[in-house]
């Protein structure tokens, strides 16, 4: 019978990605409800020493495939390795980070294992019988759907990075580490990696940013705002008046004559919220507004509204984060 929750623990250059630790955290919560174990899949080359980290973050068992064929991510070898392990151990559920690796690998695997896959989940729940309830946004975030996969195993899901909570690591936790050897079908290895080049993040497009620190007339000094954006992994955008004042480039302008954005978090610092601005950002998932004018229209769309001096709040946030 299909059993246990398997987590694909993505690593890049031997470094476990934080989404993998987040998945171990949610898997542990799920496994507690369904009375199962959390099984980590650690694939790569020269990565076996990372198994203890996965145990500390919630894995009960770590299956390690340490093989030179897995040194760089290429779909087919990774698919073959996980397919062999899945066929041997019959997982009840399998979780992947919804990254450019997880979203390449998981659908390929789901078709090979002839089972269902739910993309980019933001919430996972399970019942005592091990049925997984996978909730995900659809229609550009306008709708949430809860998906089940009742008759096929494993129940597969990719999970949005940054949503699930990782456990506090406990390096005294005990876990079993199992090393696996894969019977490769190398006739299928037909994609050749000519080169792999790491990229420094170039100028981020504000319409693709997950977090925006947006500034308006109430912000006089953009360096502090830039610091905050960097610390939070986001980017700086602005209302029209700062663009017209030449303080910010036009490609960072939010609003009707600028860009339409819908980040997970939108900070509106010192922005009053003219209708043209609101049109460009009101679909953001979570809006924090800070403005000295408590009748400012921005507060009508804000999830968290604070009447205060924006510049001073930015400064305090930089101290706190």
């Amino acid at each position: 019978m299909a059993k246990n929750i398997f987590v694909f623990c993505e690593q890049r250059d031997g470094e476990i990605q934080s989404v993998a630790l987040e998945l171990l955290g949610v898997a542990k919560q799920l496994a507690t409800v369904s009375g199962e174990q959390v099984c980590a899949l650690l694939l790569g080359s020269n990565v076996a020493d990372k198994a203890s980290q996965l145990v500390a973050y919630g894995a009960d068992v770590v299956y390690v495939v340490d093989d030179v064929n897995l040194a760089q991510f290429v779909t087919e070898p990774y698919t073959q390795a996980i397919t062999q392990i899945a066929r041997e151990y019959q997982p009840n559920a399998m979780l992947f980070g919804a990254t450019s690796i997880g979203r390449d690998l998981a659908p390929r695997l789901s078709a090979r294992l002839k089972t269902g896959l739910t993309a980019d989940c933001t919430q996972l729940e399970i019942d005592q019988d091990g049925n997984l309830f996978m909730t995900r946004p659809a229609f550009g975030g306008n709708l949430f759907a809860t998906i089940v996969c009742p008759e096929h195993k494993p129940q597969m899901s990719t999970v949005r990075p940054g949503v699930m909570k990782m456990m506090e690591p406990d390096y005294n936790r005990q876990g079993e580490v199992v090393s696996k050897t894969i019977a490769w079908d190398k006739s299928k290895f037909v994609v050749e990696v000519v080169e792999e080049v790491k990229e420094v993040q170039t100028v981020e497009k504000i319409e693709e940013a997950k977090l925006l620190v947006s500034c308006g007339r109430g912000v006089k000094d953009l360096t502090e705002a830039q610091n905050l954006a960097t610390k939070l992994g986001g980017t700086v955008s602005a209302s029209r008046c700062l663009v017209d004042a030449g303080m910010v480039d036009h490609n960072r302008q939010v609003g009707q004559t600028g860009k339409t954005v819908r980040p997970q978090v939108y900070f509106a610092f010192g922005i009053s919220g003219a209708i043209q601005h609101l049109a460009g950002m009101e679909e953001s998932e979570y809006i924090v507004a800070v403005n000295t004018d408590k009748s400012a229209p921005i507060f009508k769309v804000a999830n968290l509204g604070i009447v205060a001096d924006a510049q001073a709040v930015i400064k305090q946030l930089n101290k706190l984060i």
């Binding site: 896959l117 709708l143 949430f144 089940v148 996969c149 009742p150 507004a289 804000a302």
Partner: peptide, 22 residues
């Protein structure tokens, strides 16, 4: 189709009416 839609919900707007003066 192995996956089935169990339920759907529209996005909940928990928009803040009151603002904090801090």
């Amino acid at each position: 189709s192995p996956t089935k839609v169990k339920s759907t919900a529209t996005k909940q707007f928990d928009k803040q009416i009151a603002t904090y003066e801090l």
